[in-house]
Nucleic acid binder design. Sequence first.
DNA 1: CCCGCTCACTGGAATGATTCCAGATTAGCG
DNA 2: CGCTAATCTGGAATCATTCCAGTGAGCGGG
Lengths: 140, 140
Amino acid sequence: MTSTAPLPPEELLRGAGLRVTATRTAALRALEETRHATADDVLGSVRAQLGTVSVQAVYDVLHALTDAGLLRRIEPAGHPARYERRTGDNHHHVVCRSCGAIGDVDCAVGHAPCLTPSDDNGFAVETAEVTYWGLCPRCR
Amino acid sequence: MTSTAPLPPEELLRGAGLRVTATRTAALRALEETRHATADDVLGSVRAQLGTVSVQAVYDVLHALTDAGLLRRIEPAGHPARYERRTGDNHHHVVCRSCGAIGDVDCAVGHAPCLTPSDDNGFAVETAEVTYWGLCPRCR
DNA sequence: CCCGCTCACTGGAATGATTCCAGATTAGCG
DNA sequence: CGCTAATCTGGAATCATTCCAGTGAGCGGG
C-alpha cells in the first residue's frame, strides 16, 4: 500500500519517536540513493557526508532504524546484510549469487501465495519471505 | 518425488562418484538422526563415532557432499548454516527466530507457486526459496 | 534560556562461523 | 601394487558484527 513516503529524514525520525541526529539523517539519505545498501556502503556514504563516523555508530543507527520500522534488513545467505527503506508492503528480492546485488520483486500471485505453510510443525509462524537466486545483468 | 532413499551411506557416496571414507559415512549417518544439523552438530556426532576429527575435515565433507547433491545447505539469517539430506524436492523451511530450529514444510500450493517473479529486474533467476519465520514449540 | 537525564557516538578489542594454507596421509583405479 | 588426486591435520586468518566502557550531545522540563 504505502509506498515509501517522500518525507524528509527528520520527519521520519520524529514520527518514529527517535532523536534526530546527523548520523541518522545521513544514513537515511544514503539509503535514498542506494536502495539496497550494506552496512559498509552506508558507512562510506555517511562518512562522505559527515566526515569521521565510527563503525559502531552506523551499526547502532541501522539497528535503531530497523527496530523502529523505518528500515528493513535483508540477509542473503553468504552475503553481508543489506538494508532498504521500502517497508510496509511485503515484497520479495532477487539476489545475485555472484555479487550479492539485490532487486525488488513484487509478489507474482496477488497476495500471500504460498505463504501459509501446509504443515507448520507446531511452529507459530509469523512471516514468510521469498528469495529468488540468480545472476544479475552485470554478472552474467 | 524421490524421497530420500533408504540407501546406506556407502551406496550414496559411490553413486555420486565420491570416495567412501569414514568421515563421510559418519557425517551422513549423523544427518540421518538429526535432520537439520549445524556443522558443529555434525562435528560432534562424527567425533562421537570416530574419535578425533578435525574441524576442517567436517567442513570439507559437508561441502563435498553438498556439491555432489547429497546434502542441501540451509542458511537462516542470523544462525549458523544447517544441512539436510532431503534433496531433490524443493520443499521449504520454518525457522525458529529464537533458537534457530528448523522444520520442513511442503509447498502449500501444489507446485512452484509464486516462485516465478513478476519482474526479474534483468536477473537470470534460477531458484526460489521460501522461509517461514516463527517460534518453535519449545520456544513459545 | 538553562540543566540534567538519557540516549547516541567513539575507539578498540572480542566473537563466531567459516575459510585459507601447506604439508602428511590415503583411497582405490588401472 | 604403485600412483595420483582426493583427503585430512592443525593452526592462523578473514569478515561481518557485537561487546564494552567512557565521552558527548539531543531535547523536554523548569
